[in-house]
Every structure is written in structure tokens, then in C-alpha cells.
Simulated assay, not measured.
Amino acid sequence: MSERGPSKRRLSGASNGGSEGNAAGGGSGAAAGQWEGSGNAARIRGVNAGIMDEKVLELVFRTLNWDPQSLCVVARVSRRLRAVAERVLWRELCVSRAPRMVAALTGGAPASAPAAGRIGGGWPALAKLLLFCCGAAGAAVPGHFAPVSRFSKTSGRSFLSRRCARDLLYVSDPCEHAVAGAADDVGAYRGVFRGFMRSRTRAWLVGHRAPLEPRVRCPYCGARVWSMTAAGLAPRSASRRLGANDGCLEYFVCVSGHLHGSCWLARLSDSEGAGPDGSDADDASADEDDVGL
């Protein structure tokens, strides 16, 4: 017992930056101060260990094919896991689901280095936008995970007025929902701007003091929104692109650059405006990104 006591005291003093460390110029104290915890829980400050290692988590979720529901569960376990998810995992999910779209939104950064660009509203909001249809509140259509969605720059151009034609906007095909007692279906759609803070759309809205909607919030990031119909920035080409009845289209853009809206879809014959596979003929494959769960 007498031999172990001093040894323990010396270890304790070194780990706490004691007098011996101070006498040596503070080197031992500085090194010991980098360590937190003890035993298997010990780690160097700023370096993750075990399951908290970002690379380990990436490998785990890559094996799970970036399952969004599993990622949501993990992000709720602790603040540290939530921080890793927001910084790394949601970003990698977006890259795996829509690599070309992410590269365009981040200013042409390659998919292997998406952090070179910035995403308005953050990566969790973009991941939710890719995978979640927000439904249509006016028609009592609830939100839901969308098994497959197609986002297109060509569709986005149809939602831009001529004065804002240089902006880059991706918009999904409408997610169609049958409504009880209604002759037509409701189409819900969503989209995202690249660099919305520097866009002409935002400059026009701010410059003309377009009011923000008091009762509507972005379903993807929770930010306040502008009504593009009320602002006079909803071109008729958007209705034609969606196959919607005139005057039956409404969409909003939030301050982070996310778009969401709904419309009543007109009944089309088999020969109206569709290719043999049911898609519009002017869509090129390089212009699209198909997103699926």
C-alpha cells in the first residue's frame, strides 16, 4: 500500500498539470490538459473517438444507403451526434442522392468536396427538401416522404420571371395527390435557389419591399416566406410547366431560398405535351437529378 500511494499521487499531479509540470516549463501540464476523461473514455480534445469518429459514422450510414429515418434517430441521441450529423452526415446524404444538383448549388464544387460551397438553410434542410413532399395545406394534403422525385433546372426556369432569368433554381416535378370530392388532383412541388442571397429574385423582393407572409413558414427550414403570386413574380410559364389550371397556382420562397407550393392539375389527354414516357421532351438528362429513398 505504501508503494502504490506515491505512484498514484505522482500520476494525479502530472495529469492535473502539477508542480513538476510547471517546473518543466508547463509542458506536462499543457499535454495533460489536452486529455479529458479516463480509461477507454479518454480522448484528445477536438479529436473524436470510437463511434463519435466521423469516418466511422460515414461508413455506417453508407452501408445503410444513407437511410434518412435512421439518420434522424441518431441525430436525436445527443448534441454531439447532432452536430456531426449537421456538419457531415446530412451533407453526404445530399451528395449521394443528387450529386449533380449539389455540385451546381455549391458553385460547381465536385461531389467529393461539397463543403467548398454554402447551402442556404443548411444541409439538413436541403436533405428534407430532397426527400420530403410538404403536401398542400389548403387541400388538406399531409406531408410525406416521397419515394422518388425529379429536380430540374429547366423546370426552375419556368418559375423565374424575365427580370430574374439569370438565377439558378431547381424545381421538382409535382407530387400528385387525389382529393376526395374534387375532380382534379393536387400537385405539390418544391425547389431551391443557388446563392439566394445574391439572386435577382431576392434583390427584387427586397428592393420592392414585398411583404413577408404572416402565417406561412418554410416547411424545410422554418424561415419566413414571400408569396410569389402576391409579389407578381409567378410567371404563367410555371402553370404551363406543371400542367396546372390558370389561376390555380401558388408558391412561396423563404429567406433561405427554398421554394414550395401547390396547384390544381388539369386533366390532360395522352397526346398533350408529353413524350412517350410521360416526360416533357425538352428535359435533358444532364439537366435533371432523380432523388429516391
Rank of each mutant, 00 (worst) to 15 (best):
A244F: 12
P124W: 03
L293A: 08
V192D: 11
G37S: 05
R10D: 15
A286T: 10
G107W: 01
G121M: 04
C248S: 09
F252A: 03
V225L: 06
G26P: 05
R202I: 12
V179K: 05
F159K: 06
N245P: 14
D173C: 14
G21I: 08
G195T: 08
G25W: 10
Y189W: 06
N65L: 08
D67G: 03
R240M: 11
A183H: 15
D270I: 11
A146Q: 13
A139K: 04
L212C: 07
G138E: 08
F132G: 00
V73P: 01
G135N: 01
G26C: 03
V225Y: 00
N65E: 07
R240P: 11
E54G: 14
P147S: 03
I51G: 05
D185G: 03
V225N: 03
V60D: 00
L57M: 01
R9V: 13
S256H: 14
L130A: 01
L57T: 00
I44R: 08
G275Y: 02
S155C: 12
G138V: 02
G135P: 03
P124M: 04
D53K: 09
N40W: 15
R9C: 13
R166G: 09
M52F: 06
E54M: 13
G122Y: 00
R198G: 14
P214Q: 02
N40K: 13
N245I: 07
R150K: 08
N40C: 10
L59A: 14
A109T: 06
A42I: 07
R215E: 15
S237T: 12
D282R: 05
M197S: 15
A281G: 08
S28F: 10
G21K: 00
T201M: 12
M228R: 04
A244L: 04
C248F: 06
A274S: 10
A125L: 07
M1P: 14
G21P: 05
A49G: 09
S38D: 11
P235D: 02
G207A: 08
S7L: 12
A109F: 05
G27K: 14
W264F: 09
A115F: 06
N48E: 12
H258Y: 01
D185Q: 13
C94T: 00
R215F: 10
M228D: 08
N16E: 15
A109C: 14
K153F: 15
A137C: 14
D67H: 00
S237K: 09
R198A: 15
A41W: 07
G26K: 06
R194H: 06
G278L: 02
S38I: 13
D270E: 15
I119H: 02
A136I: 04
A111W: 00
S155Y: 07
A180F: 08
A30P: 03
P235E: 01
